[in-house]
Design a protein around this nucleic acid. Structure first.
Lengths: 188, 188
DNA sequence: GAGGAAACGGCGGGTCCCGCCGTTTATCCG
DNA sequence: CGGATAAACGGCGGGACCCGCCGTTTCCTC
């Protein structure tokens, strides 16, 4: 499991990843791989050797953010009202995706097309982390039974993707998120 | 208003548009402009002369679809239950965006960044067409007052964008659309 | 320290988008 | 009808990107 790796390879991996985080945050999901290579001081081939596809790079870049969100889910599980906790978490997912460009794209990839060799895809990770949070809300009757964490995340990602090019993405995303949570028709 | 145009220019415009429709439908919103030019039998410069930006091309390609959806909105206005009519229309918007690639991207562009010289942007067109339909639903109390057509369309577009790379986009999109309509918490 | 494998990165090819600019061609008017 | 004129065309070169190849360097092991 632990692929033995040369020291310079690990060093380059880390450098590329660090540069990629900045670059993707700044330019979005289709940042130039060559630019990342140049800034990291490596050849473009080395970038592709460590991250064979753009998806792989985006997922690696997103990993720390995903971890933070997963931790947050655990924190919120079992704390306070179950519906509020779930909504708080989803709101944070939306906010993260808005502020950290590239994350939404990484989460929009098809789970089933994930590299089976490597660890879980980003979305699968998040789904597992959010499972208990959603489960509790469902048991409390705050959410319908058929709904999955994947549904909620996809919805959040969609909202982010659709508002990305707007004047004020954060405000728009938040507005739509609340609309989706409330549903189309006002509560009685 | 009616820009006098040479005959060959109009002919080329039509050919490019026809080719672009097929190409975008097949390859998605980032189809190759040069490929379109080649297939249409014109130079790539001619394509860019008629459609200065990719956005312009996408909006032109989407125009006929938009027109169809607008007509559909008019048909549905005043027919049947106002909530059902609105939902039927939105469902068709989603279905259209799923089946006609590129449409969702065209609708995700910022309204306010639209070319003010030319006619309305795609989204603005649709918003106007859906206005009466939504207005009736709001008056009937089926939709909260603050909601705009733009909100609903953006939500629909987001759902499509987020499910685009899934195994079965149509099914996923439909599922999420219903979830968003119903809201997170089940009805009493 | 030497051998061997792993990792590197430069190079060439292909595609794309873009601006320039000489050439073709439709249109207008004498 | 035919020339003038401006619109429209499209080929060309530049720059950026992604990708595969392959000779070279660098690290690890013994």
């Amino acid at each position: 499991m632990v692929e033995r790796q040369r020291a310079d390879a690990r060093r380059n991996y880390a450098r590329i990843l660090a540069v990629a985080e900045e670059e993707v945050a700044a330019r979005g999901a289709d940042a130039s791989l060559e630019q990342i290579a140049r800034t990291a001081g490596v050849g473009s081939a080395t970038v592709r050797r460590h991250f064979p596809t753009r998806r792989a790079l985006l997922e690696a870049v997103s990993r720390t953010r995903i971890a933070a969100l997963s931790a947050r889910a655990q924190e919120l599980t079992g704390r306070g009202d179950s519906r509020d906790a779930l909504l708080e978490w989803l709101g944070e997912v939306v906010a993260y995706c808005v502020s950290a460009r590239g994350l939404a794209v990484a989460l929009s990839y098809d789970d089933s097309a994930a590299d089976p060799v490597h660890e879980n895809s980003c979305s699968r990770s998040l789904e597992e982390a959010g499972g208990p949070l959603l489960g509790r809300a469902v048991r409390d009757g705050a959410v319908a039974a058929g709904v999955t964490v994947g549904d909620l995340i996809t919805l959040a990602v969609g909202i982010v993707l659709a508002t990305e090019h707007r004047g004020d993405p954060a405000a728009e995303a938040d507005r739509l998120f609340r609309l989706a949570v409330e549903g189309l028709s006002p509560r009685a």
